[in-house]
Write a protein that binds this DNA or RNA. Sequence first.
RNA 1: GCUCCCAUCGUCUAGAGGCCUAGGACACAGCCCUCUCAAGGCUGGUACGAGGGUUCGAAUCCCUCUGGGAGCGCCA
Length: 466
Amino acid sequence: MTIRTRFAPSPTGMLHIGGVRTALFSWLYAKGRQGDFILRVEDTDRERSTDEATQVILDGMEWLGLAADEGPFYQTRRMDRYREVLAQFVRDGHAYHCYCTKEELAEMRSKQEAAKQKPRYDGTCRNRTQPREGVDPVIRFKNPLDGSVVVEDVIHGNVEFQNTELDDLIIARSDGTPTYNFCVVVDDMDMKITHVIRGDDHLNNTPRQINMLKALGAVLPVYGHVPMILGADGAKLSKRHGAVSVLQYREEGFLPVALLNYLVRLGWSHGDQEVFSLEEMQALFDIKDVNKSASAFNPDKLLWLNQQHIMRATPESLVPHLKFQLAALGIDVIDDAKLAAVAKAQQERAKTLKEMAQNSTFFFVEIKTYDEKAAKKNLTAESAPVLRSVHAKLSALSAWTAAAIHDAVNEVATTSSIGLGKVAQPIRVAVSGTSVSPPIDVTLEVLGRETTLSRIDRAIAVAGAA
RNA sequence: GCUCCCAUCGUCUAGAGGCCUAGGACACAGCCCUCUCAAGGCUGGUACGAGGGUUCGAAUCCCUCUGGGAGCGCCA
C-alpha cells in the first residue's frame, strides 16, 4: 500500500519552525518510501485565516523544497462534502442538533469549573426531538458513553482514553460551517491518509477523531504525535526565539538543507551523525525513531550546521543565494563566474550567506572607507615601501593566478626580511578595507589585476601620508 | 480542577539490565596549525530530577513524588 502523509497547517498564524519540522517529518517519511505527501490548508476559521499566512505556507514550503505530490487543498473549498457527511451523521444517528445557547453553555462551564469538574457538554440535547424557537442549532457528534479508545501511536505507544472523559463535540457551528476536528476526519479519510504525523498537542483530540472515523466506517491511519519545539530558553516558542515566519531564515542567509538538517535532529538522531544531506535524511529517517520529549531551539547549532552545509556545497550552488543576499545589500551582480569564485573563497568562513555577502562587498564595489583600526595599524609609513614592492612585483606578473600571486608576495617578504604577515596584512587592508578576508593570493586573484593595483596605489598614498 | 503526555551535560542527543568510572555534537576555555578571519586537530569542565522497589547487577524495568507541557472552545 502506498504511504500517504499530509501536512495540514492552518493559516491563522505564520508558518514557523515547529510547523516546518512536522512537515519535514511527514515529507521525509513519505518520500523515503515512495509515498505521497499531501498539503492541505486548514482554513475553516475564516475569522482568523489570512491570505498572507497562506502565502507564507506556500512560499515557505517551496523555498524549503518540501514539494507536495497533491494539493494544496483548501478546506473552504470542500464545504459541500462536509455538509454531505454532516447530513449523513445526523441521518444515521451519529450526530444531533443541539439548541443550547452560548450563554447556557458558558454557565454550564462555569458551574462545572466551580465544582472542580472537567468542563464538558452534559448532553442536554442528545434526545431532543423538537427544535427550539429562535435558536440556530449546532450539530454535535454523539460520542460513545462508555468503553475506551486506544490511540496506537508509533511514537508514544498505546494511549488509552475513557469515553466518559470525552463529550459530544460540536462538529458544525450554528451557521452550518463545520469545525476542525470534523473536517480533519473527513479529509484524512477522503484523502486516504495512511500516516497522521502531527504535533503532540493533538494527542488529546485523537480519541474523538477515532470515534468519528469509526462511525464513518473508515480505516484508521497510523498516528505519530511528535513533540513540540521549545524556545531557546526552554519556554514555549514565541516571537522572541524562533516563532517567526520560516521565510525569515531565507532573509538571514540560511540554506534550506541546513534548516532542515537542524530540524530533523530535533527529536531524531542517527548514531553520532550530525550533518545530513537531503538524500540521507530521506533514506535514514523513520517516524518510529522520533523521541517523545520536547526539545529546545538552539540558534548556535543552527548556525554551525549552516556553515557546515555552506562548506560542503559546490560554489555554483551557492551563487543564487549569494546573489540574493548581495541584492539585499543593494549590489546587483550578473557575473556568475565571479560570484562562484567569491563563494568558493568565502565558503568556509561564513556562518550564513548574509554574512558571506556582507564580507564580500569589496569584491564587487569600490571600497568607500578603510576600517579605522586596520588602516592605522597596517597602512603606515613603514608599510608604504612594502606596498610599493608588492605593486611592482604584481604589475610584472605574466599570469594573474593565485599561485603566481602567492610567490610574488612571498618574495617581497623574503627580500625585505619581514614576516609574511607584515606584507599580507597591508595588502589585505588595501584591497578589502578591513583586516579580514580570504587568503590574500585567492583574494587578489578573484579581485583581478586592475582593481588590485589601483587599490594598492590608493593605499600607498594613504600609508605614505601617515 | 479533571484527563493525557514528557523527564540523560547549559542545549541537541547516544544509551533498548552488565560493553557506562555514561559516548557524540553545539556552545565555552586552553593549546596546535597559520598572511587575517575561518576551517581543521588536540585537551578540558559540566548530566542520568528525587525517593522507594525488582535484580547478583538499573540511566535502562515497576511504583510514588517533584517538575514541565498539552487538552478540556460555535480555535485550529
